[in-house]
Design a protein around this nucleic acid. Structure first.
Lengths: 264, 264
DNA sequence: CATATTCAATTGTCAGACAAACAGTCAATA
DNA sequence: TATTGACTGTTTGTCTGACAATTGAATATG
C-alpha cells in the first residue's frame, strides 16, 4: 500500500497559549525585562480559563522565556546559557553520550576559543586569568579546588573569545566533563604540575597575541586531561550516565537553575 | 558588611513535583519508553491536587523528558536533539548572537565532523551523501532546494561522525545559519557550481578516508559560504534576530517540534 | 519628606465537576 | 474465523468557583 500517513497531531489549548506567547516574545512584542500580562488578562485575551493559561505559562517558564523577578510577576527574559546547558545535559545523559564524544568536541572548541581570545581579550580578563593561575598554585594540594579552578580557567577563556554561540555550545560540555571526571579527582594530583604549566603557557600565548602557541598548549592540555582520566581508570567509551552519579548531576543542574537573581 | 546573602528561593509545589519526577527519570527509576503514573496516582504520591501535578508535568513536558505517545498518556523519553536545538535557537536569537559567531563555531565543528566521519562513515551513509549530491545537480536552478540539500549534506556528515555530542552541538548552528541566510538565497545561485564542486571533493575525500583533504575542502566550502553571504549583502556582525524573519524561525521550531511520532 | 498602615490586585493551591478521547472487552455480523 | 460495531471504565483536558498568602501601590501618619 502506498498510502502516506502523517501522524495526527491535536494541539491542546495550553500548547496554543504557549506558542502564541512564545511567538510574541520572539517577535519582540513582549519586551524583555517587562512583566507578562496577568493571568486574568490572558484569560480575557485567549478566552480560556485560568487553569489552561497557567499550564501554558509553565511551558514558557521551563523554556526560560520568563523568569521570576523580585515579585511574583513573571518577567520576559532571554534564556541564559545555563538554561541551554540544562537541556544539553539532560539530552547527553539520557542519549548515552560518551566521555570520548564530549572530549572530542570540547577539544576543538577550546582551541577555537584560544584562537579568538587572542584577538579579543581585555586587560581585566587577562588579569582574571592570571589570578586564576596564582590561586591554583596556592591550592596545589586540594584536588577539588584544582578541578573547580580548571573549569573556571576554561570558562574565562571562552568568555574572552567574545562569541556567544561558542559560549552556548561549550558551556554544557565543560560542565559535563567536569561532572564526569569528578570521581577521578583525587587521582589527578600527580598531574597538577603539568596542568599548571599548560595553563601558564596558554596564558602567556594569549597575552602575547600568539594564537598558534595558545592552541598548541591548549591542545596539549586537553590531551593530558584525557590521558590522566584513562590512567585513573576512566573508560572513555562508556556513556557518561554510567559514572556521573546522580547527586553530582542534580547539584549541577540546580546550580545552573538558581539562584534566581533578585534584581533589587 | 561581610554578610553574604544568598537570594532566597521559595520553590512552589509544582516545581517540587517537577524536580522529583526529573530526578526519578535521570536516575532511571522511571524507565524510558514507559508511561508516567496517572495524574491521580501522582496526586496520591505527592499529596497535592491535580492542578498542581499538572503544572509540574508541563515543566517535564517542555524539558522533553516526556512526550505524547499514541494515546494520551505521557511517555518517558530522552530529549532529542531537536529539543536541545530549540533552546539553543531561542537563546541565540534573544541574546543577539551574530552570523559571525555562528559561522566561526560551525566552521570548526564541520571540520571536526569531516575528520571523524572519515573513520566512521558506513556504506549506506556514503550512498546517502552521493544521492544528495546528484539531487543537487538535478536542481541547480532552484535555490530553495539547493539550500535545503546543502543543509542536509552537512547533517549527514555530522551524523556519520557518530558523535552524539557533536550532533547536539552542531544541529542548532546548522538550522540557524540556514534560517539566517534564507533571505539571501536567490542571490546565491551564481555560487552553486562552487558549492557542488566542494561537496563533491568532500565526499571523495571522506570515502577515500582522507581526513586532511576532507577538512580542507569543507573549510573552503565554509569560507565560500561566508563570502557568498557578504557579497549578497548580509552583515555578518549583525545579530541574527535582526534578519531572521519570525515566520521562518517559527516554522523551523515547529518543524523540530513535531510531528510527534506515533510509535504504532 | 520619610515612614508606617491599609488595601486591592495577583498568584499559588485547593475542591469538585464534566465531556471527550482512549483501551479493552465482548457480542453481532459477514 | 476474522472484522466490525457497540458498551464500559479510565484518564486526560478544561471548566467553575473559592481562598489564603504575597506583593505593590496608595494612603495616612510622624
Amino acid at each position: 500500500m502506498a498510502l502516506k500517513a502523517e501522524p495526527i497531531v491535536v494541539n491542546t489549548s495550553y500548547q496554543a497559549v504557549f506558542l502564541q506567547l512564545e511567538a510574541a516574545i520572539l517577535r519582540g512584542e513582549l519586551a524583555i525585562g517587562e512583566a507578562i500580562p496577568t493571568e486574568a488578562n490572558l484569560c480575557d485575551l485567549f478566552h480560556v480559563k485560568r487553569t489552561t493559561i497557567r499550564e501554558g505559562i509553565r511551558l514558557l517558564e521551563q523554556s526560560g522565556l520568563v523568569t521570576r523577578g523580585s515579585g511574583r510577576r513573571l518577567i520576559v527574559s532571554a534564556p541564559d546559557a545555563g538554561r541551554s546547558s540544562e537541556n544539553f545535559i539532560r539530552s547527553a545523559t539520557l542519549n548515552r553520550v560518551t566521555l570520548q564524544d564530549l572530549w572530542q568536541v570540547e577539544r576543538e572548541l577550546e582551541a577555537l576559543a584560544c584562537r579568538l581570545a587572542c584577538a579579543t581579550i581585555s586587560q581585566p580578563q587577562l588579569e582574571q586569568l592570571a589570578e586564576n593561575i596564582s590561586k591554583m598554585e596556592l591550592h596545589k594540594q586540594e584536588p577539588k579546588v584544582i578541578i573547580r579552578l580548571d573549569m573556571e580557567f576554561h570558562r574565562l577563556i571562552t568568555e574572552a573569545a567574545g562569541n556567544r554561540a561558542l559560549t552556548l555550545a561549550r558551556d554544557p560540555l565543560g560542565i559535563l566533563l567536569y561532572a564526569s571526571t569528578d570521581f577521578v579527582v583525587t587521582r589527578l594530583e600527580q598531574s597538577t604540575e603539568r596542568m599548571l604549566a599548560a595553563h601558564q603557557q596558554v596564558y602567556e600565548a594569549i597575552s602575547a597575541n600568539d594564537p598558534e602557541g595558545a592552541v598548541i598548549w591548549m591542545t596539549k592540555h586537553m590531551d593530558d586531561f584525557k590521558r590522566g582520566c584513562i590512567m585513573a581508570g576512566a573508560n572513555f567509551d562508556e556513556p557518561i550516565a554510567d559514572f556521573v552519579d546522580h547527586d553530582t548531576l542534580a547539584k549541577l543542574l540546580l546550580q545552573n537553575r538558581g539562584p534566581h537573581d533578585a534584581t533589587p
